[in-house]
Write a protein that binds this DNA or RNA. Structure first.
Length: 293
DNA sequence: CCGCGGGCCTGAGAGC
DNA sequence: TGCTCTCAGGCCCGCG
């Protein structure tokens, strides 16, 4: 659901309505999301400008003119939509018109850009936090995150070093945000298929005894990069909840090679395999037992 | 320190 | 048709 490509799609959608705009009003309609809202949440946003809207892992981060940053997480089912963008914003006019309210609309930002930005989250696994921008890397949300997979610094040597001493499977290692930031169940399965590596393979086999990256690490880095970049280009994957800001669906679900394709032929050229589903760490894993080794 | 599994939460879909 | 059950998965936490 919202993994790196979906969050990046949301970021790009929100950016024109948030960057350079001030919070005119903040309405928390339901404060009991995954974590309680910070004290004085609305007061600490209202009147301040969003200087930049960034993404780190699966988090959206809005750097504010107050010196604080707003950290937003979509959880499993969170989405944003923009209402009533008008050329000439009038303070106080953007409070989430009743006629447009939907179930599970939990937070509304009225921005000076004229946009009302609505956060909707049926399952309430999402959350919002505030913290000093300067101390963001030390924030509990950010502290333990591994490298950004689309950052050029993320390479085979780095991945091998992070996996070297892990006794767990590749599936579990790649799902761990301390190893790579932003992958979830879908893109882990997809990257492993593209790299032709079994999800059950030991993560430590990405490094030699001495710690150097193996060819498998190289293949996996390439596969992760490719699948994420392709998915961002497609506007993410829409299974159930993910939507672009304008409500349009993402397209990448049509490019899944293994995810939720149990029993279908493996799409790898000339591979006679059939996609199989197994459970690892209580989660479904989809892979081809023939070409993924 | 590490890995595993349970819990949080709601809606969709299956099966009776 | 309507009920109940299972499953979906990001992330935290407690246990061994």
């Amino acid at each position: 659901m919202p993994e790196l490509p979906e969050v990046e799609t949301v970021r790009r959608g929100l950016q024109p309505f948030m960057e350079g705009a001030r919070f005119l009003a903040v309405d928390v309609r339901r404060p009991d999301l995954r974590f309680p809202f910070p004290p004085d949440f609305a007061r600490r946003l209202t009147g301040f400008t969003v200087e930049r809207l960034l993404r780190r892992a699966k988090y959206l981060v809005a750097d504010l003119s107050s010196g604080e940053s707003l950290i937003m997480h979509l959880g499993m089912s969170g989405s944003f939509r923009v209402l009533a963008a008008e050329a000439e914003p009038v303070p106080g006019r953007y409070h989430h018109p009743r006629s447009e309210a939907r179930t599970h609309d939990h937070v509304v930002f009225a921005m000076s850009s004229g946009a009302s930005i609505v956060f909707n989250d049926p399952r309430r696994f999402g959350f919002m936090q505030l913290g000093p921008t300067a101390a963001l890397p030390d924030h509990s949300c950010m502290r333990n995150l591994g490298p950004e997979p689309l950052d050029p610094a993320f390479d085979a040597a780095m991945l091998a070093a992070l996996c070297r001493r892990r006794k767990t499977s590749l599936k579990a290692a790649l799902s761990d945000q301390r190893v790579v930031a932003g992958l979830g169940n879908i893109y882990v399965c997809e990257a492993l298929n593209r790299a032709r590596l079994s999800p059950r393979r030991k993560a430590s086999t990405l490094a030699t005894r001495a710690g150097a990256p193996t060819d498998h690490a190289q293949a996996l880095v390439r596969a992760i990069r490719t699948v994420l970049a392709d998915a961002v280009r497609a506007g993410g994957s829409s299974l159930r909840d993910h939507r672009r800001i304008d409500g349009a669906l993402g397209d990448f679900q049509h490019s899944f090679r293994v995810y939720d394709r149990t029993g279908e032929p493996c799409p790898t050229p000339r591979c006679p395999g059939v996609i199989r589903r197994i459970v690892q760490g209580g989660r479904s894993t989809y892979y081809c037992p023939v070409c993924q080794r």
